[in-house]
């Protein structure tokens, strides 16, 4: 059962990583224009990041 000492923190850290990534995307306003983001990938010129 000692393996739990490693595996449980591992699973928590992985989950936490996903949560932090989600919060980052939310902070950077990545859900306000899903349709536009799908189209912007096709733009020729360098697309400046959001102001």
């Amino acid at each position: 059962m000692n393996i739990l000492v490693i595996l449980v923190p591992c699973s928590l850290i992985l989950g936490l990583g996903a949560l932090v990534a989600f919060i980052w995307t939310l902070r950077h306003d990545q859900y306000s224009d899903p349709a536009g983001d799908a189209q912007r990938i096709l733009l020729e010129e360098d697309d400046a990041p959001r102001p």
Binding site: D33, A35, G36, R50
Partner: peptide
């Protein structure tokens, strides 16, 4: 200074 299109809206 800046203009940004929001296609969804």
């Amino acid at each position: 200074a800046a203009a940004r299109v929001n296609l969804s809206r």
